[in-house]
Amino acid sequence: MNIFRLAGDVCHLVAIIILLLKIWRSRSCAGISGKSQVLFAIVFTTRYLDLFTVFISPYNTIMKVVFLALSYATVYLIYMRFRNTFNSENDSFRLEFLLVPVIGLSFLENYAFTPLEILWTFSIFLESVAIMPQLFMITKTGEAESITTHYLFFLGLYRALYIANWVWRYHTEGFFDQIAVVSGVVQTIFYIDFFYLYVTKVLRGRGKMTLP
């Protein structure tokens, strides 16, 4: 554990809580991609199956359970509790375009051809593209509420901090997880364009972010 990793996990948690509170307090999931949230729930489910096989630390176990619970709670709010506020017509990203290549790649490129390893690899690859339905939705509607942009900012910050964590671990422990690092870098690239808009539009302006 190092400061980048801890800060990354905290940003990830903050992002998820921001989204959950936004939906809960506004009683609405307008502008939120339910598909991205379902993908994140699948990511956590397939990655954290090792909860049943290895014990790493109390921190590790608690965070995994919290991420799982919060991601399912988010999906529940979007598709059940506040489903009448959900803009399904704007959440039109075709999931098979992500799932088919990700499933294929996780069978081809993994550390061991075992069910748990393939599912772990699948979760890493899927996480790297899971935000695409949300970004697609913002591009389609041309705007995002500022609270949604804060969510995306913390999610992007989490990814950037994980890269710092890997640089740190490489230099201090010689640790290098090729699958996680390559996917993590790809994932972070998706946020760069958004970061630019966030700083220029949201932080300097007020209210919604509108695309140029």
């Binding site: 990793r5 996990d9 990830h12 090792d50 290895v54 790493i56 630390s57 590790n60 965070m63 995994k64 991420f67 550390y111 061991a112 075992t114 390893e117 772990w120 994980y162 964590n165 640790f175 997880d177 996680a180």
Partner: peptide
């Protein structure tokens, strides 16, 4: 598999 690193990251 003993070659696999423990996946301690979230």
């Amino acid at each position: 598999d003993e070659d696999l690193q423990t996946k301690d990251e979230l």
